[in-house]
Design a protein around this nucleic acid. Structure first.
Lengths: 245, 245
DNA sequence: CGCACTTTTGAACAGAATCAAGTTTTGTGG
DNA sequence: CCACAAAACTTGATTCTGTTCAAAAGTGCG
């Protein structure tokens, strides 16, 4: 008889962020898992890490050993150019995964920084990769997760390469709203966790342009801005902005 | 005794583009492969597809069933915005992989078009994914391949988001030269396979700006341009361009 | 409560887009 | 293989979007 570690609903939720809807049965019952693998599985979902606002989860060049699923909080990832210019490559919120860029070289290819107090679930990559050999459902989901990141990046390339400042910002606000909505918060009223400068870096524009464009959206009655607080008043018109022209 | 399909050096090279340096032994000898798996492996590397210049390998929305490794030729991938704007997301040459963005949704997320007569090796994804369960080396390499694509996209985001036209073009020429060099051709003299408009789309600028900037590089003695023929005269100065400012 | 950081807004400027015209290259069919 | 039409490229003039520089106002953290 194999040793058995009960998996709580909470743990399972974390695991699913990375592993997808592997069923309890698939994960817990002895579908070819030996004692060591069950232990591995346990380790896979039991390591947490807390970060204070401003603290780095990892830095460019750090050796890679784990992926991270955000449990709560908010982070940004960014690459730093040799001359110091910083390009934000993404903002991550609850349920999203960080670290996938590090698999290729075994070293992190960007910095990840907590924008507010944050807790992540640390998933040792060797264990995950090994386990994915045994569990086809997990493997499949993991591949989809990697692929989804590629698609996300392509969307950002489209935005950076062929949209104007106004369109980029509209797309950004709608995307944020969508993601807050997916997590059970309001789709149209939320607080930005990042500065105008970080938004600008992400969208390929200067902080002044971000500020001006937000002000213009407000004048036109599309949104209400009050510092970090944002309310989207006319979602349809914002959507039209991202596709018109 | 298992049925045995000899694997030629040529086939192995194709397979390695996707699967990495799995040894002959690992691939061909019965390391847990049953008859069906050997057949699968055979299919994995034996399907070719020829494309004429201008022909599509796949289109956005096509159902996903295979990845493609370029054997010879040159392709571009691009996403089309609702209003018709086109963003080139990459140029692929011999040995490079296409189709990884499709894994996430089982449908292709971009178009892939041959820019010259091209031959690709078609790798059925179900088979590859299944086989990756059995062969840890293959699995590892495949994950690295996916991750490398993410890193590549991030590099492009940096370029699109925080470089000026001149820097982008310099980076582009150096990158192309590097890749030709990796394939045994000259690193400093090559023919562009794509139009100024396609370069512009990739780099987030208009074709006129591409043309003007190339002309300026030539005036400054950095390169020689003659239509599609490019020669890089001062690689170091071009490199300096991409990091200065 | 005060200092540092962030944000807003204005004015001048610069880089790239747009519009336009002419030239070269390429591909096709005779 | 040549002629011709279409596509691709170059270059100039003008316009416009977004940057830069600057200063003041707001916000929040210790």
């Amino acid at each position: 008889m194999l040793p058995f570690q009960p998996i709580t609903a909470q743990n399972l939720r974390d695991l699913r962020a990375i592993c997808g809807n592997c069923s309890m049965r698939e994960l817990c019952l002895p579908v070819g898992l030996d004692a060591q693998e069950v232990e591995t599985l346990d380790a896979l979902i039991n390591t947490r890490r807390r970060l204070e606002r401003g603290e780095a989860l990892y830095r460019t060049g750090d050796p890679f050993h784990a992926l991270y699923a955000v449990r709560r909080g908010f982070l940004k990832t960014f690459v730093v150019h040799e001359d110091g210019r910083e390009q934000v490559t993404g903002f991550q919120m609850t349920g999203e995964i960080l670290g996938m860029d590090a698999i290729s070289t075994d070293h992190h290819a960007c910095d990840a920084l907590a924008l507010e107090d944050t807790e992540v679930c640390e998933v040792p990559f060797d264990a995950l990769e090994h386990l994915s050999g045994t569990l086809p459902t997990l493997r499949r989901h993991f591949h989809k997760t990697l692929s989804r990141e590629i698609v996300r990046d392509q969307g950002l390339m489209l935005l950076l390469g062929s949209m104007r400042a106004e369109e980029r910002l509209a797309a950004f606000l709608l995307n944020l709203g969508q993601r807050f909505g997916d997590r059970g918060y309001s789709r149209v009223a939320f607080n930005l966790r990042m500065t105008r400068e970080e938004i600008g870096s992400y969208l390929g524009m200067k902080l002044e342009t971000v500020s001006r464009t937000l002000s213009r959206f407000q004048e036109e009655g599309l949104i209400v801005v009050q510092g970090k607080a944002i309310e989207l008043l006319q979602v349809e018109k914002l959507k039209a902005l991202t596709s018109c022209r």
